[in-house]
């Protein structure tokens, strides 16, 4: 059975609308990427050096990064040799299989949130303008839908209007927001919020933080402190540290992931703004090199536009046309 058919089976068993949503969000990505792959396959009937070179370029344009692309293409070369593949029919499945494989290299990681029996604390971190606050709003809506009681902590006390932004999301979703005034100590906000969350016995507390560029030592130290304060109040907390990454970001995302991981032990990534034309290919490298899994993807500005990340579906989204074609056989 082909890879695509296996995928299809796997996916049809799951929620169709989610898959649709994923597909919709990835349409733009897919249109450009898949049509290019198809174009490539159509133009090259033979799998030769020229084919690999074009493939290389295709992946580079998806922000996958030089190192990962080289690795992938080398593996493909070997695979093609091993399986004695001469023409490009069916090469698509080999490509997507490899992409998933590269993504999954290393230990199997849980893509689900690490939920506790009592209070679960989630800390949201990232550079400026990647969509942390929006993601928190969407995540709160999602968890509430699942029947959890949720509370938000307005830890971005620096950026103008950031607290108000979270408060609006709180009203929209219908959850309480713990806040202090602009300019107050974010660690103090967290302390307050944890106290409040314990008192009200909520299931999940999601903590917002101010965006910061990872090369600002002082600001990263501040974030470390916030992380520490949370850990002091509840052992083992924060149970999840989610790094919001903008899908439009290029190779710097790898440095972001690395630095934030060092400071706050990031447990997962939320890949935002995937509804544009950007591919966010750098997550392959991040997963591969730093062992941080993508847990969610942001596919729009609506409340329900946050979806769990599934590498197979991600690749399926990239190669959906190929899938539908093969399904006809």
């Amino acid at each position: 059975m082909s890879f695509f058919k296996k995928l299809k089976e796997k996916i049809t068993g799951t929620n169709e609308t989610v898959t649709e949503k994923f597909k919709d969000g990835l349409t733009k990505t897919r249109d450009s990427f898949t049509s290019k792959v198809n174009d490539l396959v159509a133009r090259f009937r033979e799998v030769d050096e020229d084919f690999f070179e074009e493939l290389e370029e295709l992946l580079l344009q998806a922000d996958v990064g030089v190192e990962t692309v080289m690795e992938l293409v080398d593996q493909l070369r070997w695979e093609v040799k091993r399986k004695n593949i001469k023409n490009t029919d069916g090469i698509q499945s080999v490509i997507s299989e490899k992409l998933v494989e590269i993504y999954k290299a290393g230990e199997e990681l849980d893509a689900n949130l690490n939920m506790q029996d009592d209070l679960t604390v989630i800390l949201m971190v990232g550079v400026n303008g990647v969509g942390k606050t929006t993601t928190i709003g969407k995540l709160a809506a999602r968890l509430k839908e699942e029947g959890k009681t949720v509370m938000l902590a307005a830890g971005d006390t620096f950026r103008a209007g950031a607290i108000d932004q979270l408060v609006v999301w709180g009203e929209r979703v219908g959850v309480e927001v713990i806040r202090q005034s602009e300019g107050s100590d974010p660690a103090a906000v967290m302390y307050d919020a944890i106290r409040a969350a314990k008192n009200r016995k909520v299931d999940v507390l999601i903590c917002d933080t101010a965006g910061r560029l990872q090369n600002k030592v002082n600001l990263m130290n501040e974030l470390e402190k916030v992380h520490r304060v949370i850990g002091k109040e509840i052992e083992g907390a924060p149970h999840e540290v989610l790094l919001a990454l903008d899908a439009t970001t290029g190779q710097n995302a790898l440095i972001q992931a690395q630095t934030f991981k060092e400071a706050t032990n990031v447990t997962g990534i939320v890949l935002t703004k995937l509804d544009g034309t950007a591919k966010g290919g750098i997550v392959l490298a991040i997963r591969n090199k730093l062992n941080i899994p993508v847990k969610f993807v942001g596919l729009g500005e609506g409340m329900d536009d946050l979806q769990p990340f599934d590498p197979e579906k991600y690749v399926y989204g990239l190669f959906a046309e190929g899938l539908e074609e093969e399904a006809w056989e």
Partner: peptide, 16 residues
């Protein structure tokens, strides 16, 4: 008018 509190953000900057 779309992003929550975007107006407040500009107003705060204006005040500063």
């Amino acid at each position: 008018i779309y992003r929550p509190a975007a107006i407040q953000q500009l107003e705060t900057i204006g005040k500063q």
